[in-house]
């Protein structure tokens, strides 16, 4: 019988098969199962329903459920691909996959474009960037005069908006982040390399007969 469970357990509702999820992502089966440990702890923090709602997501990010945050909302909306107001385990693993150190750079560029294209128009527009800058200033309690914000926006759009039509398209974004790779730093989570070490308890809750590495 060995150390591992020899039977396949019935998965929890909304819990997609880890073998299938591993085949669709850069994660191994063990890593998907370790991610489930993280998912379980987030999704049960307010309502134990196997789904992450916005409040639980904010709580996991800030350890404070009252803290509304434009950027956390934006990330949540991008994870919530089915637009149901909740993130299921499959959504979570597939979104986290983009943040894997081995994920293709193109996927990271595309995700970051969507993150900043808040209105979903296919362009990052100046008013969106201004809104995000103001949100950042509120969050950090940093004070900048409106004139300074406009100067930062002028400089940014001069560099990024090559055709100077007042908005950044996907191709301009691609070139801009390629020239400024530090902008993609938020798109990589080194933690994902060591997820099985961070959540070793996945071994005891495994649904597969053998733990693949």
């Amino acid at each position: 019988m060995g150390c591992f469970h020899s039977t396949v357990r019935k998965p929890a509702p909304g819990h997609e098969n880890p073998i299938i999820l591993a085949s669709q992502t850069a994660f191994s089966v063990s890593e998907v199962e370790a991610l489930f440990e993280l998912f379980k702890s987030i999704s049960s923090s307010v309502i134990d329903d196997g789904l992450i709602n916005k409040e639980e997501f904010q709580l996991a990010l800030f350890k404070n459920r009252k803290k509304e945050n434009l950027f956390a909302n934006r990330i949540f909306d991008l994870f919530d691909v089915k637009h149901r107001g909740v993130i299921d385990f499959g959504d979570f693993v597939r979104a986290m996959n983009v943040f894997h150190p081995n994920a293709p750079q193109e996927d990271k560029i595309s995700f970051s474009f969507k993150l900043y294209d808040m209105d979903g128009t296919g362009f990052i527009e100046r008013h969106e960037v201004k809104q995000m800058l103001i949100a950042l200033l509120c969050e950090s309690e940093l004070k900048l005069a409106d004139e300074t914000i406009e100067t930062i926006l002028d400089k940014t759009f001069l560099e990024a908006d090559v055709d100077q039509d007042g908005k950044i398209d996907k191709s301009e974004w691609h070139n801009f982040v390629t020239q400024n790779p530090s902008l993609l730093k938020i798109m990589t989570l080194p933690y994902l390399r060591d997820i099985t070490t961070t959540f070793p308890s996945f071994v005891f809750n495994s649904e597969v007969e053998e733990i693949a590495t």
Binding site: L61, N69, L70, I75, M132, L133, T151, N180, L189
Partner: peptide, 26 residues
């Protein structure tokens, strides 16, 4: 005061709300 030399996206990417590492902190 010092002039701001970062572009808007460098500043925005400092947001705590965009730092998903905190999801892994128990």
């Amino acid at each position: 005061s010092q002039p701001v030399t970062m572009n808007a996206f460098e500043l925005i990417s400092k947001s705590q709300g965009l730092n998903l590492s905190s999801l892994f902190e128990k």
